[in-house]
Write a protein that binds this DNA or RNA. Structure first.
Lengths: 294, 294
DNA sequence: GTGTTGGCCAGTCGCCGACAA
DNA sequence: TTGTCGGCGACTGGCCAACAC
């Protein structure tokens, strides 16, 4: 199993590919009702998180062994700032190029402004292949997430125009949206959907036009404006196991968001990644990274 | 001289307070035409930068000695992320609590999204009070920036409402705006002003109403919307020495922008600040920090 | 089956002086 | 002197089916 294209350059160790055990899977997935009390973040829905992250993303379960590449991570941080790594960086001779780590915790997040999804992971370097660690690792095998009911549509010019609403593909509407009462003329209902921050969006869902079609009208433009969506971006509707409607977005790969931090120089960030890893490796102490799909 | 409330916790050394020499002052201020080729940033106008930063902010001139506090800087970075500093951070026994540094360069910046102003500085630790450094330091004394012609108005509810335009205080209009032709009925003209990113904004400036007053009408709402201004924020009009109009904003102190990076953990940032300073101190090599007024 | 367009209505934007603080 | 309001035009936001691919 691999984390295919993540900023954190982390791959699960070969020893832990396969199928996940029930316990580990529960900690990592936990569909509608997250089991563990998170910080103050409103406990992001895992199904929606994965749907927004895309089909290529899967996270290793808590308790598994993963391989962390400090240098690669550092380079990707630099790349995300569109900045080459300068010289003037101290070398960390005792820092191995890869660290075998025990994955202590994974918390799912979404940027409050852009809805970009990412995960925070706590890793602890392990320098012994002790029996216990291996067992954990063997337990923590690849598990396919139970496929959830959802659809994803790339927005057209009409969908994002102020001129009209959102055209729901027929199969998607029939599979995901609550059924309409076709005795009405025209059939219509009010939809409520929660986004990844648990904000509720309300839409008018109507079946009309010639030929007939499913449309979201009233409320749609507020969503497009609020999320700053453009043609080419995608929206995702998920129906969770409690028949609740969830709503996410996946932006078209735009120009790198250019998060030139204005807080910390890229050199300091680079050094921070390496020094944090070196310190953790020297002490076998846990450290925290962000894994950023994309 | 002090940098009163900056994230970077940097104060100019006592040896360098006083009046600035011509050479150093030229490098730091340079009204309309910045002297040095910058990176790719469009060379921010220094007068406008200072006007947006507010009257309490002044930057030490290039070539002066400054005192840098790594621990304080690190704490302020943590504070900007609304995150306490954890333990698990290595200690840097050879890192002094303050570093005397030569200020190599200062470049002015503004956040492309929020227009928040900040400065990037390159510092080099000096461990000897050599003659040369002292001379530089004595040369680089406090200099009052030549006061420029500008006005600053806090926006009212009417100014930011969609219902109308911007009411220009009379004295401000007469001092800063190009004079109207009062033979016209009503007197009116088109104004062009450049913001800190060199973007041109166009306004209709008209003198009308009963009693007569200066108003900005057409184009004003685009500016308010584009900059996401609200009542309580301020706008600043500057007339530079070439009679060009410059336009800046100063936001009311809102809730901390909460830049929880999603790229680097706060621990790594904390370590990055300290390790970068420690490395620079050990090698007398230059390092880069961001100074963030506010 | 679905993306785009013209029609059309209603709500808001935005320019104006009146008025008052 | 300048902040807010009622007034009113004009524009565009947004719902609709027609039509094309």
């Amino acid at each position: 199993m691999k984390l295919p294209r993540g900023r954190a350059t982390m791959k699960q160790s070969p020893a832990s590919s396969g199928v996940a055990p029930a316990a580990a899977a529960a900690a990592a997935s936990a569909g509608g009702a997250p089991p563990e009390g998170e910080r103050k973040a409103p406990a992001i829905n895992a199904d929606l998180w994965y749907a927004c992250a895309g089909p290529l993303v899967s996270l290793p379960p808590v308790g598994s062994l993963v391989v962390y590449f400090p240098q690669g991570h550092s380079e990707q941080v630099a790349a995300s700032m569109q900045k080459d790594i300068d010289a003037h960086v101290p070398s960390y001779p005792n820092l191995p190029s890869k660290l075998i780590c025990l994955l202590h915790s994974v918390t799912l997040h979404a940027d409050p402004d852009t809805d970009e999804v990412y995960a925070q992971m706590t890793l602890q370097p392990v320098n012994t292949y002790g029996k216990e660690a291996l067992q954990l690792s063997e337990l923590a095998l690849k598990h396919a997430r139970p496929q959830m009911e959802f659809f994803c549509k790339t927005l057209t010019a009409s969908d994002t125009s102020t001129h009209g609403g959102f055209s729901v593909p027929r199969r998607a509407a029939e599979k995901i949206l609550p059924p309409l009462d076709f005795n009405m003329q025209p059939p219509a209902q009010e939809l409520q959907a929660r986004d990844i921050h648990d904000t509720v969006w309300t839409f008018r869902h109507i079946f009309r036009g010639q030929p007939k079609r499913h449309l979201l009208t009233t409320g749609w433009s507020l969503f497009v404006g609020g999320k700053r969506l453009f043609a080419g971006d995608s929206v995702i509707f998920v129906r969770d196991e409690r028949q609740q409607l969830l709503l996410g977005i996946r932006r078209a790969s735009r120009q790198p968001t250019n998060i030139s931090s204005s807080v910390l120089s890229s050199d300091s960030m680079h050094i921070g990644v390496l020094a944090a890893a070196a310190h953790a490796a020297a002490n076998n102490s846990p450290f925290t990274i962000f894994y950023n799909p994309r």
